[in-house]
Every structure is written in structure tokens, then in C-alpha cells.
């Protein structure tokens, strides 16, 4: 019996995005990372190629996150200093790049000024030589100022800035164009808005080739299936010729997983669920692994054990 030909050929490729700039390119990074370029769905190597494997970004925050002790212990005392934390993530956890969240900019936390935030970015660029993903505080108004300062401080370093939404895309596009950064386009678990933000950016002359899509991430058990299908549909549309969706995708796994009860609370609350110390990193790893299947190119992760597991899977 002849085996039928079942190969699916894609009409287009996912765009290739490089983050970070070497000295020769006007930056100071010791390495850059390149993602995207796929011509097939994840793991379907017989359909096409996936030239650039997914990468892991180390989760760093400028203030200590409200995390369980076992996670803080796993990271070590370095968690109290974003610079030391980032250094450890690169050197010991083996992440490919650093994702820094400037939560300290919020009025409810430390109400740091945009200048203070930019100062930290400058220091971080000196401390580690991997590429950076820079997020604001989470307050849209304040982030206009914070991200503008940080963008200038990292000018020429070809960072990935987070993030452009329906309501702030004009500012974000202007900032990233001026300082030559890549941009995350974010949508609230809505594939249509995801596409719309890209159209809005494109309409404003921001090159689609400089975009990484972020459909918002859901932890396992908290709408994971929604996000999974959205990412899969986005990737599938991109491969079938929808230029607007043919972009690499990012998942913020660490942020979401470490907010869930299932990953954090002990056996005293979840009876029979096993030790949180083991369960937590497994939860993060399983969630991240799921998103790899859906088409994630960048995974932001926190627990060193989970990072190690996923790194092995990718390799």
C-alpha cells in the first residue's frame, strides 16, 4: 500500500526577529538571540523547518515579587537585587535573555521615578551582556514616561520593549522607532485584538518585522486552553499567508504560574497534591512545555528547576 502524502506546505514564513545588538552593531551585548523563521507548526519538522529554537528569558523584577518562600529560596538571596538576580539567571540558570519588570514604578509599591528606572536599566546593561526585554510598571500612564526613559537609556541595544496595546500603541511605536528597539504587541486573550494591534502598528509605519506578539498568558488551569488555541491559530494563520499574524510569539509563564494556588500552596491546603516545592516548578515547566507546542518563541520563566527542564526539552 502506498502511504499517502500528508505533508502540509505553508504559504509563508514567520518573520525572523533578532533581539540585542553586538558591539559591531552599535550595542554592547556579548550575544544576541534570533527567533522565528518557521515554515511549519511546532515539532512538525517533516512539514517545514524551524530554524531558530525557542528561547528562555529569565524573569527579573526590580522589587521582590510576592512569591512563595521555596521559590525565593531556589533563586537565592540574589532575588533582593535585580542586578545580582539577573547575573545569576544568566550564569547559573542558563537563560538566553533577561526580562525585567519595573514594578517598583507603581505608586502602590515604591513609586520610583522614570529616571530611577532608567538608571537600573543602564546598570543592568553593564551587569549582563545578554539581550533585554523591558516591561514597565503596569500602569499605562506612568509607563509612557518610564518606558520612554528606559528606551533612551538602552538606545542602540535593540531591546524588546513591552508592550503596545490598543490604547498606547502610538506612544510605544514612537519610542521604539526612535531608539531602534523591537516591540511586543499585546492583546487580552483575543485573537482579533491581537491582529488589530498589529494592524494599528503597521498603519503607523511600525515595521511588522520588529514585532513579537503577546496574546497574554494564562497559567495551566486558568484559561491555558484559551491562550493555547489562540497562539496555535495565530501561528497557523501566519503560516497560511496572513502576514499580520506571521510573527514570533511570547509567553509570560513565570508571572502567571506563580500567582496560582496550585503552584504555590502547601499540602496543608491542597491535600494529596504533593509537596509544593516540587509541584510548583513542575507546574511552571508543564505550562511552558504546553506553550512550546502552541508556538511560543520566547518563554519568560522564573524557577531554576523549571528553566532547566525546559532548556533540556528545547535542546
Amino acid at each position: 500500500m502506498k502511504i499517502p502524502e500528508i505533508r502540509t506546505t505553508s504559504k509563508s514564513r514567520i518573520s525572523t526577529v533578532t533581539i540585542g545588538a553586538l558591539k559591531a552593531d552599535g550595542g554592547t551585548r556579548g550575544s544576541t538571540i534570533t527567533i522565528g523563521g518557521q515554515s511549519a507548526m511546532p515539532h512538525l519538522s517533516f512539514d517545514g523547518e524551524s530554524p531558530h529554537p525557542p528561547v528562555i528569558a529569565g524573569y527579573i523584577s526590580d522589587i521582590v515579587p510576592d512569591w512563595p518562600d521555596f521559590l525565593k529560596e531556589a533563586i537565592g538571596s540574589e532575588i533582593n537585587s535585580p542586578l545580582e538576580w539577573a547575573q545569576k539567571a544568566v550564569e547559573e540558570f542558563g537563560v538566553n535573555l533577561i526580562s525585567i519588570k519595573l514594578r517598583g514604578g507603581l505608586a502602590e509599591t515604591k513609586d520610583k521615578s522614570p529616571e530611577e528606572c532608567a538608571g537600573l536599566i543602564e546598570d543592568l546593561l553593564k551587569t549582563v551582556d545578554v539581550p533585554l526585554i523591558i516591561w514597565g510598571s503596569g500602569n499605562e500612564e506612568k509607563d509612557r514616561l518610564i518606558l520612554q526613559e528606559c528606551s533612551q537609556a538602552a538606545r542602540g541595544e535593540n531591546c524588546l520593549m513591552g508592550s503596545a496595546t490598543e490604547s498606547n500603541y502610538l506612544t510605544m511605536a514612537a519610542i521604539c522607532k526612535a531608539d531602534k528597539h523591537k516591540l511586543i504587541s499585546e492583546a487580552p486573550v483575543d485573537i482579533n485584538i491581537g491582529k488589530q494591534v498589529n494592524i494599528l502598528l503597521d498603519d503607523n509605519g511600525f515595521s511588522l518585522d520588529d514585532i513579537v506578539m503577546f496574546q497574554t498568558t494564562a497559567a495551566l488551569g486558568y484559561g491555558f486552553d484559551y491562550v493555547y488555541t489562540i497562539m496555535e491559530r495565530a501561528r497557523s494563520a501566519g503560516l497560511q499567508g496572513d502576514k499580520l499574524m506571521a510573527r514570533p510569539q511570547l509567553c509570560d509563564v513565570g508571572e502567571e504560574v506563580w500567582r496560582t494556588k496550585e503552584a504555590t500552596v502547601g499540602e496543608d491546603i491542597l491535600e494529596g497534591w504533593g509537596e509544593a516545592r516540587k509541584r510548583g516548578p513542575m507546574w511552571e515547566a508543564v505550562c511552558a512545555e504546553g506553550y512550546l507546542q502552541a508556538g511560543a518563541d520566547i518563554l519568560i520563566m522564573a524557577h531554576p528547576e523549571a528553566i532547566r527542564t525546559i532548556r533540556e526539552i528545547i535542546q
Binding site: 483575543d190 482579533n192 485584538i193 491582529k195 488589530q196 494592524i199 496572513d242 502576514k243 499580520l244
Partner: peptide
């Protein structure tokens, strides 16, 4: 609902 959301854009999310 999906089609409605797609059309909640000018002219449409399927702009191509």
C-alpha cells in the same frame, strides 16, 4: 460572536 469581534474594527480585522 467571533465574526462580530472581527468586524469591530475599521474596516475589518481581515483587512487583507
Amino acid at each position: 460572536v467571533e465574526e462580530f469581534k472581527k468586524a469591530m474594527f475599521l474596516p475589518h480585522t481581515d483587512i487583507d
